[in-house]
Design a binder for these strands. Structure first.
Lengths: 237, 237
DNA sequence: TTTCTATTCCCCCGATTTGGCGGGGGTCGG
DNA sequence: CCGACCCCCGCCAAATCGGGGGAATAGAAA
């Protein structure tokens, strides 16, 4: 029991495919003896990916109804940092209560703990465990395993990112210092004239940098170039 | 030694002020017997905050030169998720090598490990330990304490957010779905006309969304609005 | 109920930005 | 030595952007 977390991390490190990730969450469910374990990532392309132990019918219904937009777990975690007990969430909205009723009906436990995880470029994921039991039993479970769950969610997300990154990696030419300066200042809200003044160059020279940066990044216009440079961490606004 | 992490977490929970946070990183430095410990939050809405053990002169110089924009540690961590050993970073740029020389001169250790941490609204922070020692010694240290450092960085950032939330709470009104759509498409490189066509609304309606989004975000122009929305995780390009 | 917001549409206008065409000078590696 | 890249500058026409007027519907909040 004491070395449980080491085993989990070790097993996590060996995951190589999304299929193995799916089997891992099932294994975690059995290991921690809870009803369900869910890893749910929202990547930048907008295509969500999930590895979970819910009934497929519930998952389909959830996606079909676009419940991600009203689910209090998703909404609540999106603006929080620390793991969230489902009881702390705001279930007051009518749509939220209707959703909860449906969820319980679909076999989702009445108790839950969700860990928000964030990666580069606004990547956002949730690691959730949920179970049907009393408040005191659940409190005992969460206090005992909170640190484990934080670490697991971290490694889980790292693996998921690693697996998915292989496909959409784009090789790009580095931007020159002046090009980075130009995009940074524009991203900070300056006009070209202001940025040129700040950099002590002519407004037209600045344009040359913007154009070459746009070309290197394959951007359609200035806004696109700034967005792309930010998205791959080249500039920080 | 085995219960070290429990002690750390317990002590972290008691932190209430930024001053205590500062003393905590000093305590961590002594506990783990490393040269320096740095917690460095980059708060987009306001000014950055740091609790660290570097010499004040180096910190001042760093801020004055705006080294955050060329520091390979910051740039590298910004696009990564897992803790990063400084040796894995890209030190090839001339500015990076010059920066490194200055840093070593200022007493920064030659070995380092930085943990990127992300919170809601694009909040980004770094938890770093660094030390002067050989590669093998450093490898032994990092493998032994990696999980500790991940957990510490998590709790540290949670506390920092908790403490700062009171003071610099910027009331940002949420963007409407259409405003988010508009900014997203513009960030993807479309012109207003193209984005309007995609959303099946008039080009002028789109302009209304852009303007209201610009107003809500306090942005000077469209590019700025897209950059701000991206920076605080509201849109993903 | 009334106010607020979100969503959609229309007009006009000028300033800014854009994209394309030129031209110089420097440094660096093959 | 030459190509490649980075750094600087100018002119021009057209497209885009930002701002000024409006106004209607629906739904949610107060």
């Amino acid at each position: 029991m004491a070395s449980r977390i080491e085993n989990v991390v070790e097993r996590l490190q060996q995951v190589r495919t999304l299929d193995e990730l799916q089997r891992l969450v099932e294994w975690l469910r059995d290991l921690y003896q809870v009803d369900h374990v869910i890893y749910h990532a929202v990547n930048r392309a907008g295509e969500p990916y999930a590895a979970l132990t819910y009934a497929p019918s519930w998952v389909d219904h959830y996606l079909e109804q676009d419940y991600g937009r009203i689910d209090p777990v998703v909404l609540g975690c999106y603006q929080r940092f620390h793991p969230v007990d489902w009881k702390q969430l705001d279930w007051s909205a009518r749509s939220a209560r209707a959703f909860l009723a449906e969820a319980l009906d679909a076999g989702v436990g009445n108790q839950g703990l969700s860990v928000p995880i964030r990666g580069p470029s606004g990547q956002f994921a949730l690691f959730t465990v949920n179970h049907s039991c009393s408040d005191t039993e659940w409190a005992r479970f969460t206090t005992a395993h909170l640190d484990d769950l934080i670490l697991i969610s971290h490694y889980l997300n790292q693996k998921a990112l690693e697996i998915m990154r292989g496909s959409d990696r784009v090789p790009d030419r580095p931007l020159s210092p002046r090009e980075l300066d130009a995009l940074t200042l524009l991203g900070m809200g300056m006009s070209r004239a202001q940025a040129a003044e700040r950099l002590r160059i002519s407004e037209h020279t600045l344009r040359v940098y913007i154009e070459s940066a746009r070309f290197k990044l394959g951007a359609a216009n200035t806004t696109h170039a700034v967005a792309l440079a930010m998205a791959c961490g080249k500039i920080i606004v």
